[in-house]
Design a protein around this nucleic acid. Structure first.
Lengths: 300, 300
DNA sequence: TAATTTTTGAAACAAGTGTTGCAAAAAGGA
DNA sequence: TCCTTTTTGCAACACTTGTTTCAAAAATTA
């Protein structure tokens, strides 16, 4: 049995497995390399499962013992189908163009993130985090390609603070969302050149009202620079004509992480609360639940 | 010590080694994968050398025992090449905590992206891109933390194709957006565990109507697996309790890039058109323009 | 409810692990 | 040659490995 067959068998038999064996299967499939490299007991510990369960998983998919299963994973790691290893060894050359493209994308993403984080520097990012933490209210704005970044900040931030307002221009409500912004507030504006007209205007408006500005852009020079303003630069070099947003996403995740690190224990309670609230709304799929009705009911 | 350093040390010290240890060293250097995957005793047998000799080799190059040497080979075999920058500045210690945090975030993002792209493999990603390109219509769904990813795909995709429909559950319109989905259509569903209830239901509904499914998740095992379904796994390990979306973002950008690469010149025309259309709406800030009115006018 | 089957984890097992000490063998120097 | 040093492999070591057995716990059925 080769790796892909095994993978198929595991996923197809998944439903019939017992919960613990399922947990093992999930970990095994999601951490292929660990299976090949670690001992069964170590693996079980990582997967948070009893060692015996690993044996049972192996037997459930037709092997005599765990080592037979491990062999498949080792062989797969040796074969390195997508040249997992070859790249590190530098023996490129006869690759198909998609693979080359992907490697460039990955390289690009790495460079963008690295330069964005280290280019800004820990001190500046910390300052930005403090800026946000000190804000009375936080307005978040990002349009078009920058909207996902604004949204993800807003979503994560909303988990532990309730003073955020996402300005998304839904149904032309930009001006309405910003109404009342003023001293003590901070507007987080995310935009890349060419800068969205509305974002620039929002920033200037907010500044005129005395609010602080934190921008995430792709350049040191922006039409949003000014008083009480901090500008973080996220690189967005990409293989296509779309600027990549991986780096700005990483920057936003960094800001969140710093804020959480500063928040300490108190914050975690708030997050737990947010989670509980989501559960109450049955927002998530229960793994053990029955096949659901296929159509959405009115009650949703 | 990283792999390259170890290799250098081994080759440079080779002359001073005893014949048996040399034999061991030779085998070890020529069979890198074996070292990572087999036990010391098996390895010694393969190398036709006494087990003890392997221990001596390890000690000769500065390790305390064989396992320390093995670790280096295992790390090297793992997809995550954390040696690019991380190891070079491995001498941490007197760094402030924020900097350390940032470096971990950056490292994390890199590993996530690398493993997501290479773990899926060029073939599978290409297949996914073809899947999307062949679709009559493309429905895109992602809720909560996955919404930014869905949106960014939708936005970029919309630049060169006009058969996309973003299902964002705005004002409870999920079912409405999906109405009419059927054979020939593809639903791109982005979700991480715990999976959003609505997303799972949407997928099952779409499948029941004959549509194809492309999922981007954080696990091989999802309640959305089934017929006509392709699942791409994006790693989302993070420093905080929020899953990181940098890798899924990178995956989405990769899909877009592949599609564009396949589309050729024709596509570029369409993109130019999209741009022109945006310009007509004066969506972007003109660098040379005057200071704008501070408030938003009704006309916007 | 009670009886049943299934699932789970603890303990014990033999086999295999990496390591160490030591003595025999080999090599080198006088 | 003899003596010293280095090299080598054996045997025993404490430990970890994968596996099996079995009873308790949980889930399912009657």
């Amino acid at each position: 049995m080769d790796f892909d067959q095994l993978k198929d068998r595991m996923t197809s038999q998944f439903e019939e497995m017992s919960p613990q064996v399922q947990a093992a299967a999930r970990y095994v499939l999601d951490n292929v390399e660990d299976v090949a490299l670690m001992s069964m007991r170590q693996l079980a510990k990582e997967a948070d499962v009893h060692p015996t369960t690993m044996v049972r998983l192996a037997q459930a998919v037709g092997f005599e013992g765990f080592n037979d299963l491990k062999d498949v994973f080792q062989t797969r790691l040796r074969a390195a189908p997508d040249d997992l290893v070859g790249r590190a060894r530098g023996l490129q050359g006869k690759k198909n163009s998609t693979l080359k493209l992907l490697e460039e994308i990955e390289q690009n993403a790495h460079n963008n993130i690295y330069q964005s984080i280290h280019g800004s520097g820990a001190a500046k990012l910390e300052k930005a985090a403090d800026f946000l933490l000190s804000a009375k209210r936080v307005f978040i704005m990002g349009l078009r390609i920058s909207y996902p970044v604004a949204f993800s900040f807003s979503y994560a931030y909303g988990m532990f603070r309730s003073n955020a307002q996402l300005v998304d221009g839904q149904a032309g409500t930009t001006a309405d969302s910003l109404r009342g912004i003023g001293e003590g507030d901070v507007l987080l504006a995310i935009s890349v050149s060419p800068f969205s007209r509305d974002t620039v205007r929002a920033v200037r408006y907010a500044r005129s009202r005395g609010a602080g500005i934190l921008t995430i852009t792709d350049s040191e020079i922006t039409p949003m620079n000014g008083d009480r303003t901090l500008n973080l630069v996220a690189r967005n070099e990409s293989m296509t004509f779309f600027p990549s947003i991986t780096a700005s996403t990483a920057l936003v995740e960094s800001l969140i992480a710093i804020m959480i690190a500063k928040g300490g224990e108190d914050l975690l309670d708030v997050v737990a609360e947010s989670r509980a609230q989501l559960d109450e709304f049955e927002a998530y799929w229960e793994v053990q639940s029955q096949t659901p009705p296929l159509l959405f009911s009115d009650k949703d």
